[in-house]
């Protein structure tokens, strides 16, 4: 076959010589883009690592406010969605556009489920005043049995598993903040034997920013899926033209992967 015949393969853009060249370029481009995504989140993970090393007690204390069950369900949802997305790629390769539509729909549903649960969690945090930085103003009124996310971990853990005050060498080397967030009623807490570390707000800053940026990526991924869905409905994909689904799936796997790191790092500390 001659490469520069004017009657190009309709799936190949004018500046590519062959279908293979176009496919490989697209794949490489996507991988390079994903590298930049990893580095984008890398900065946040770096931030996390440094502050966790500086203030381990903050992370141990504050992570108890996160709901492991909801987080765990979300993890499973995302892993399942990665499976269905990979399935969609396979279906596109085989030219089964109907199956592509179905699989992407399931993936989309999973994404909605993930964001729904995330919204519930965010709502709890907002109601409990567990907001980032200088807006941090936790409220403890709703105690006893109401919501795991709102309950003071000291009482939630009960006697069986009393919160352990961090050993001295685990403490931050930085002097207590000159102006810390109000509202935790530190004196009372300390009197009860529960040691509330300084700068708890830091954890929630990290929590909101990291899960927030991840959530934005989920939203972007849903946008990509809707676009793929419309193309699949028109029956565009086939053995020679599945690059878009493939790249969309790669992106979705990375979004999934980021969450798989976020979940243990934020929820499963203590």
């Amino acid at each position: 076959m001659s490469d520069h015949e004017p009657d190009h393969n309709p799936h190949v853009a004018h500046h590519y010589e062959t279908e293979k060249q176009q496919f490989e370029s697209g794949k490489l481009g996507m991988w390079v883009f994903l590298v930049t995504e990893i580095l984008l989140f890398g900065g946040l993970f770096c931030w996390y690592a440094i502050y966790r090393a500086n203030h381990p007690e903050v992370f141990i204390y504050a992570s108890r406010y996160l709901d492991k069950v909801l987080g765990g369900i979300n993890t499973i949802i995302l892993i399942c969605s990665s499976l269905t997305m990979a399935w969609a790629v396979r279906a596109a390769q085989m030219g089964n556009n109907k199956l592509v539509v179905r699989m992407i729909l399931v993936t989309l549903l999973c994404a909605c489920g993930f964001l729904g649960i995330k919204a519930v969690e965010y709502n709890h945090k907002l109601n409990a005043g567990l907001t980032p930085g200088r807006h941090y103003a936790p409220r403890h009124e709703e105690q006893a049995g109401a919501d795991p996310a709102v309950v003071d971990p000291a009482s939630a853990a009960g006697d069986a598993n009393p919160p352990v005050a961090p050993p001295d060498d685990d403490k931050s080397l930085i002097a207590p903040a000159a102006r810390g967030p109000e509202g935790l009623n530190l004196g009372e807490e300390k009197a009860q034997g529960e040691q509330v570390p300084d700068n708890v707000a830091l954890f929630f800053s990290i929590y909101w920013v990291m899960t927030g940026l991840h959530g934005l990526h989920v939203l972007a991924g849903m946008g990509v899926m809707i676009w793929l869905l419309l193309r699949a409905k028109r029956g565009e994909f086939g053995p020679h033209n599945f690059l878009a689904v493939d790249c969309g799936a790669l992106y979705w796997h990375v979004v999934d992967l980021v969450w798989i790191f976020l979940f243990p790092l934020l929820y499963l500390i203590d």
Binding site: W47, Y51, H55, P132, G133, R134, R179, A201, V209, L213
Partner: peptide
């Protein structure tokens, strides 16, 4: 991500770079 954190810090006061909130 650095500029994004700076914007978030400035807009929301999340304390990433604020020593008073444990930041650096």
């Amino acid at each position: 991500i650095t500029l994004l954190l700076l914007i978030i810090e400035r807009a929301l006061g999340v304390g990433i770079f604020d020593p008073a909130l444990g930041g650096d």
